[in-house]
């Protein structure tokens, strides 16, 4: 990593932390965007609390999706679950055509308003990219490698833990990254169903016609997404380099 890009990332992180902890410092920047003396900085709650709530929702949901999706991915690539493999591939394809907003909207009448429908929608939607990438990662491990591991006398569970999963890890991480970035955006829509998060800031802006609020909510989510995306990319590249393979792209 070049020194310039490290510096760029550090300053983006610093800007984000400064903004959510002391947003009032930035009031002059947002003042030109307001009309009729409307407040320039979101004043209906602490940006820090909302940011943490947003992150908690996204990480909680993604963690649950990761556990379930990786376990399912392992199951359908073992001999006992092979029968489910072709169907689960098609289901992942079909599932990804479901818009996340539709999942959220259908969850609300079933479990009520608040954080629950958002968590459910994020969890369900997050499953698909992780499951898909777990499948890709585990099925592309070369049969020769597996044969060699078997020849060395490794048991199936040791083969899985010490050969297959480490080799598939960069691709699985790419799936988790996709889920997190999509979920960071979708969680803002959760605020239309009364989930706590940065969507509140954006929606308050839309309702009071205050662009400064919209921009603040949007900018914090976008910065979070860029930084997290970047962190995952770095982890994927490091891991792929260690494995001697090609770096995971896109």
């Amino acid at each position: 990593m070049s020194r310039g890009s490290v510096l760029l990332r550090a300053s983006a992180l610093l800007l984000l932390v400064a903004f959510v902890t002391a947003p009032d410092l930035f009031a002059p920047v947002f003042e030109p965007l307001t009309v009729n003396g409307a407040p320039a900085i979101y004043n209906q709650g602490s940006l820090l609390t909302l940011t943490l709530a947003h992150l908690a929702t996204v990480f909680g949901a993604t963690l649950a999706s990761t556990v379930v999706a990786v376990l399912l991915g392992i199951f359908v690539t073992r001999p006992m679950g092979m029968e489910f493999l072709p169907l689960s591939r098609s289901l992942v394809n079909i599932g990804q055509t479901f818009p996340p907003i539709a999942v959220l909207a259908i969850a609300v009448p079933l479990v009520g308003f608040g954080a629950k429908p958002t968590l459910i929608a994020l969890f369900l939607y997050g499953l698909l990219p992780i499951f898909e990438n777990t499948l890709t990662g585990l099925t592309q491990v070369s049969p020769l490698t597996l044969e060699a591991a078997k020849g060395m006398g490794m048991s199936p569970s040791r083969r899985l833990l010490e050969v297959e999963l480490p080799l598939a890890m960069p691709i699985i991480l790419a799936g988790i990254r996709l889920s997190v970035v999509i979920n960071l955006g979708t969680a803002t829509i959760g605020s239309t169903v009364a989930a706590k998060g940065l969507g509140e800031v954006i929606i308050a802006g839309l309702q009071s016609n205050n662009t400064a609020f919209i921009l603040q909510g949007g900018a914090v989510v976008a910065l979070l997404a860029i930084l997290i995306h970047d962190l995952f990319m770095t982890a994927e590249r490091t891991m792929a380099r260690k494995l001697g393979g090609v770096a995971a792209t896109s």
Partner: peptide
């Protein structure tokens, strides 16, 4: 790619200006 990370409702809102 940065544009893709902006949440949709925020981008809709920002473009109103």
């Amino acid at each position: 790619s940065i544009v893709q990370t902006i949440p949709s409702i925020a981008l809709f809102g920002i473009l109103m200006v």
